Amino acid sequence: MQKISPFLWFDNNAEEAAQFYTSIFNNSRIVSVMRSGDSGPGPKGSVMGIAFELEGQAFKALNGGPVFTFTPAISMFVDCETQEEVDNLWARLGDGGKPQQCGWITDKFGVSWQIVPLTLGRLLQDPDAEKSSRVMRAMMGMIKLDIAGLERAYRGE
């Protein structure tokens, strides 16, 4: 059992969001759905909460109403091995959402995601400060992160 899980507060579409996310990521599933009973809080049978997993990471979600909304202050960070994976996740999570700078994207539910190639961390941690600075400048100018562009910056091209 995972001791700590992200808990996402949705207005009234937690089940739709969980279904959307589990359709995008491998090794993902809906674990359980909690429905309101006779005493509420919503109409009997409506989804109150949902537990799901994305790539084995446990999440909980609640239909809590419009009291709170998501901000980029909390985001889901996704490590990607290839440009193909970056492109696929960017397209699918961005469907109905809004791209942001530096590999961030806000999905149609308002949840912020960082779609980041593993290469970026390696390049930014290079002991050669000039190389890592070039990579940082390149990343800051990107919306969706581009591995080839980051590597060109690293090489000084």
Rank of each mutant, 00 (worst) to 15 (best):
residue 10 F to S: 07
residue 44 K to W: 05
residue 139 M to Y: 04
residue 82 T to V: 09
residue 124 L to P: 08
residue 3 K to I: 03
residue 71 T to Y: 09
residue 98 K to R: 15
residue 31 V to F: 01
residue 16 E to Q: 14
residue 80 C to E: 05
residue 127 P to I: 02
residue 87 D to V: 04
residue 94 G to H: 11
residue 152 R to N: 15
residue 75 S to A: 15
residue 62 L to K: 09
residue 29 R to H: 04
residue 144 K to Y: 05
residue 50 I to T: 13
residue 76 M to I: 15
residue 104 W to G: 00
residue 56 G to R: 10
residue 50 I to S: 13
residue 5 S to P: 00
residue 106 T to I: 13
residue 113 W to G: 12
residue 19 Q to G: 13
residue 115 I to D: 04
residue 117 P to A: 09
residue 45 G to P: 05
residue 108 K to P: 04
residue 101 Q to A: 14
residue 125 Q to A: 14
residue 7 F to E: 03
residue 24 I to H: 02
residue 64 G to K: 08
residue 98 K to H: 10
residue 90 W to Q: 05
residue 69 T to S: 15
residue 136 M to T: 12
residue 68 F to K: 12
residue 81 E to H: 11
residue 5 S to M: 10
residue 29 R to I: 03
residue 63 N to V: 09
residue 13 N to L: 04
residue 49 G to N: 12
residue 102 C to N: 03
residue 32 S to L: 04
residue 38 D to Y: 08
residue 39 S to P: 00
residue 94 G to I: 10
residue 5 S to I: 00
residue 132 S to A: 11
residue 120 L to M: 12
residue 11 D to A: 13
residue 68 F to V: 15
residue 92 R to Q: 13
residue 136 M to C: 07
residue 55 E to K: 11
residue 25 F to M: 07
residue 71 T to L: 08
residue 23 S to L: 05
residue 108 K to N: 04
residue 50 I to Q: 04
residue 63 N to M: 11
residue 152 R to C: 10
residue 60 K to M: 15
residue 32 S to V: 03
residue 10 F to W: 01
residue 93 L to M: 07
residue 20 F to R: 05
residue 4 I to P: 01
residue 145 L to N: 07
residue 78 V to E: 06
residue 100 Q to W: 08
residue 43 P to Y: 07
residue 46 S to F: 06
residue 106 T to F: 00
residue 104 W to D: 00
residue 79 D to I: 09
residue 127 P to C: 01
residue 143 I to L: 12
residue 147 I to G: 07
residue 37 G to H: 03
residue 60 K to C: 14
residue 142 M to N: 05
residue 73 A to E: 12
residue 143 I to G: 14
residue 39 S to E: 13
residue 139 M to F: 03
residue 51 A to T: 11
residue 19 Q to W: 00
residue 143 I to Q: 15
residue 7 F to K: 00
residue 127 P to A: 02
residue 137 R to S: 14
residue 122 R to M: 08
residue 64 G to S: 12
residue 31 V to W: 01
residue 9 W to C: 08
residue 104 W to T: 00
residue 127 P to W: 00
residue 49 G to Q: 14
residue 72 P to R: 07
residue 142 M to I: 01
residue 47 V to D: 01
residue 116 V to M: 09
residue 141 G to V: 01
residue 138 A to M: 01
residue 75 S to M: 10
residue 66 P to V: 06
residue 101 Q to E: 12
residue 149 G to V: 02
residue 62 L to G: 09
residue 155 R to W: 02
residue 7 F to S: 11
residue 109 F to P: 10
residue 44 K to R: 09
residue 119 T to R: 14
residue 83 Q to V: 06
residue 44 K to F: 00
residue 126 D to I: 03
residue 55 E to W: 08
residue 3 K to Y: 08
residue 141 G to I: 01
residue 112 S to E: 06
residue 17 A to D: 05
residue 16 E to Y: 06
residue 118 L to N: 15
residue 151 E to P: 04
residue 80 C to I: 09
residue 15 E to T: 06
residue 73 A to H: 14
residue 99 P to S: 04
residue 87 D to G: 08
residue 10 F to L: 06
residue 70 F to C: 13
residue 21 Y to A: 09
residue 12 N to F: 04
residue 97 G to C: 03
residue 60 K to R: 13
residue 64 G to D: 11
